[in-house]
């Protein structure tokens, strides 16, 4: 089991945590504002497709990444139109939205790229060792020899905490999710705030999808690439009690569960079927739920459309 302390294992864990954390940060804000985005699965999938498609056209992964974020933002806004402006039921829209995105991305892939997508060099998003910090023993290898996306998350996560608890924006987001009617009566434009949050949620989910396809999958998009990670994000957001810090920690644990398969060969000699490792993050999420389940208090208006 010495493999579990190897820097390679934890470096992989953090790399694999990146897409989950990106999406979960957005979902944390969305749920704090009262929007339960079952459709995050679809938002991530659209981001993944957008990234692959744009990168393939432009030949540049950075452009692809930006395209994914944009696609996510647009779909997040559309999703918001349904659940925020039209007050549609959030669970129902989520189920429908995921079906639509699954079908649409699959159609678009075959329609637009009948001969397959051309995967450009993803080197821009590959690991880049940071000077000085990267030289630190173990820590340097784990934390500072990572993709730029991971570095962005080092900034984004604390910023999320700051935004949520130390700014007026955060105050508004929390108020809107914990007392939508009260906020509305206090003159706050609840729909407007929820719409913005959905755009942010979509953007981050899109970026998460882009990370999945461009970094984790080496630029190859396949149908249903996200494969349930959106639901992991939902679970993570909730058992991390809607706090970006706990979300980050939980994401790394998921990453670790995912990374188990890389050291499995060495540790278990390849006798364990791959399905066990694929299952691991979901089992971990379930276990986390069982442990945390009762203690967390959800935003009061989570999932409830504002009727006012």
């Amino acid at each position: 089991m010495h493999n579990l302390v190897e820097s390679f294992f934890w470096a992989s864990a953090i790399a694999l945590a990146a897409p989950i954390l990106l999406a979960a940060l957005g979902e944390t804000f969305a749920q704090r504002a009262g929007v339960f985005t079952i459709g995050i699965e679809g938002l991530m999938l659209s981001g993944a497709f957008g990234a692959a498609a744009v990168a393939s056209w432009s030949g540049d992964v950075i452009v692809g990444f930006a395209g994914a974020a944009l696609a996510g933002a647009v779909l997040g806004a559309l999703y918001g139109v349904a659940v925020v402006l039209f007050r549609a039921d959030q669970v129902v829209v989520g189920i429908g939205f995921n079906l639509i995105v699954l079908g649409a991305t699959s159609m678009l892939r075959r329609g637009l790229f009948p001969t397959g997508m051309e995967v450009p060099s993803t080197s821009a998003l590959d690991r880049h060792e940071l000077p000085l910090l990267g030289d630190l023993p173990w820590i340097g290898e784990v934390l500072f020899d990572q993709s730029p996306i991971v570095y962005a998350l080092y900034v984004l996560t604390p910023f999320g905490v700051f935004l949520l608890f130390r700014t007026r924006v955060g105050l508004l987001v929390r108020a809107v999710g914990d007392g939508a009617l009260a906020s509305s009566a206090a003159g706050i434009r609840v729909p407007r705030i929820r719409m913005w949050v959905m755009v942010v949620n979509g953007t981050l989910a899109g970026a998460a999808g882009a990370t999945l396809v461009l970094v984790n999958a080496g630029g190859v998009f396949v149908d249903n690439l996200v494969d349930g990670r959106g639901y992991l994000v939902l679970a993570l957001t909730m058992f991390a009690r809607w706090h970006p810090g706990w979300v980050a920690l939980g994401a790394v644990l998921f990453g670790a569960a995912d990374a188990l398969q890389f050291i499995a060969q060495a540790t278990f000699g390849g006798h364990v079927p791959t399905a066990v490792f694929l299952m691991a993050p979901y089992l971990l999420a379930l276990a986390a739920w069982v442990v945390m389940g009762k203690r967390s208090r959800a935003p009061s208006d989570l999932g409830v459309p504002l009727l006012a």
Partner: peptide, 29 residues
């Protein structure tokens, strides 16, 4: 034409009806 078309055609009515129902509830309120 990809068979995934079915998902789009199945998913759309739910979203449309959910929106209509939500808007109606809001109007009634």
């Amino acid at each position: 034409v990809t068979a995934s078309l079915a998902y789009v055609v199945e998913g759309l009515p739910i979203v449309l009806l959910a929106c209509a129902a939500g808007a109606q509830a809001l109007r009634a309120q």
